[in-house]
């Protein structure tokens, strides 16, 4: 059965419409647009229960929005705020301001405060799975931040000095947040990969050399076909991970295997497709004015956003039947 039903496609069209109004070269995220996304579509609280101010939807709806955010390749706090918001809601915190778009929350999977995604703009930080396997919350108002220069022009990072920052522990499941993080990241990656393949296909159809469209040459046609294969294989892994995240009957090991598989597959696909898109466009694809490098930058940075896929290899080998080496 297809993962997305007609109401999901309606949501997709609404999100795409709103994102289409943004300046694609904006520096940093567009606060006015974020407010509209929260006010009109409730994206910040999409999967938060209605009793906590959210819309009460689930991972499938989040996947639709994440795909569109990835496709548009705009600066957006959607991914981090969604993940942190869900953790805060699970921990019984007041998430009203986050849902309304008044406060930005972010999430980090290491407790040292380094390379915190959206750490340059967030108001509150959720630290997931430190050594004790707990989830803690840090208010960032008085924390010293060092915003970083990022390869990715669409997503900021900061080093945060958390040494003296007070932390409070909340009751949220770190494994569930981690699985959802790489699953939604995979959705963004698929959205971006799909878009660069469309751009490359359109360019190969219009651009004429040697008297015919370059897409009629096998060398270019086969490059694009390989991009399609990579995209659709990765999309299968992504959709499976979303479907399992949305199914309450899914066991923790099943979710872990599916999420890590999607993480590895979609990371590779996004990196590969964005690199190939530059090549498919030739010289024009290598210019600052063209969007190709912006997607490529996002792909490279996304590859190490929530842990490198290399970190997944050991667990995936376990899922494939290789028990962990005796230590």
């Amino acid at each position: 059965m297809p993962l997305y039903a007609s109401e999901h496609e309606q949501l997709r069209a609404s999100v795409r419409g709103l994102l289409g109004t943004a300046d694609p070269r904006a520096d940093g995220y567009d606060r006015a647009l974020w407010r509209r996304l929260c006010d009109e579509l409730g994206v910040a609280g999409l999967a938060i229960g209605e009793e906590q101010g959210g819309s009460g939807y689930g991972p499938v709806e989040l996947a639709v929005v994440a795909e569109e955010v990835g496709r548009a390749n705009l600066p957006s706090p959607f991914l981090t705020t969604t993940l942190a918001g869900l953790a805060l809601a699970a921990g019984g915190e007041d998430v009203g301001p986050v849902v309304r778009g008044d406060r930005l929350a972010t999430v980090s999977f290491s407790s040292d405060g380094r390379h915190v995604v959206d750490g340059d703009v967030a108001d509150v930080l959720v630290l997931v799975g430190d050594t004790a396997g707990t989830v803690t919350v840090v208010e960032l108002a008085s924390v010293v931040r060092t915003p970083l220069t990022t390869m990715d022009l669409t997503r900021g990072q900061a080093h945060l000095d958390l040494a003296d920052a007070p932390r409070r522990t909340i009751a949220a499941d770190p494994d569930r947040i981690a699985a959802l993080a790489v699953t939604l990241l995979a959705c963004e990656q698929i959205g971006g990969a799909e878009r660069v393949l469309e751009m490359s296909t359109a360019y190969a159809t219009q651009r004429v050399q040697f008297g015919r469209p370059i897409g009629s040459f096998q060398a270019v046609k086969h490059l694009l076909a390989d991009m399609l294969v990579e995209l659709e294989l990765a999309r299968s892994a992504q959709q499976h991970a979303v479907a399992l995240a949305a199914d309450p009957a899914t066991t923790a090991p099943e979710l872990d295997a599916a999420a890590r598989t999607a993480h590895v597959a979609c990371t590779r696909a996004f990196v590969r497709l964005t690199g190939d898109a530059i090549r498919a466009h030739g010289g024009i694809g290598y210019t600052w004015e063209h969007d190709a490098h912006r997607y490529f930058r996002r792909a490279r940075a996304s590859a190490v956003l929530f842990g490198s896929p290399a970190d997944d290899a050991d667990r995936l080998a376990e899922h494939a039947g290789l028990a962990r080496a005796a230590s």
């Binding site: 294989l233 999309r235 598989t261 050991d314 995936l316 080998a317």
Partner: peptide, 29 residues
């Protein structure tokens, strides 16, 4: 090396199987 290569092959195997299932049920692509 073996763990890394097995993980890679596992990811590919999963994608092949999941793609076959997806195409059987959904041909929107």
């Amino acid at each position: 090396f073996v763990r890394r290569a097995v993980a890679d092959a596992y990811v590919m195997q999963q994608q092949v199987e999941l793609f076959a299932r997806r195409v059987a049920g959904d041909v929107r692509v």
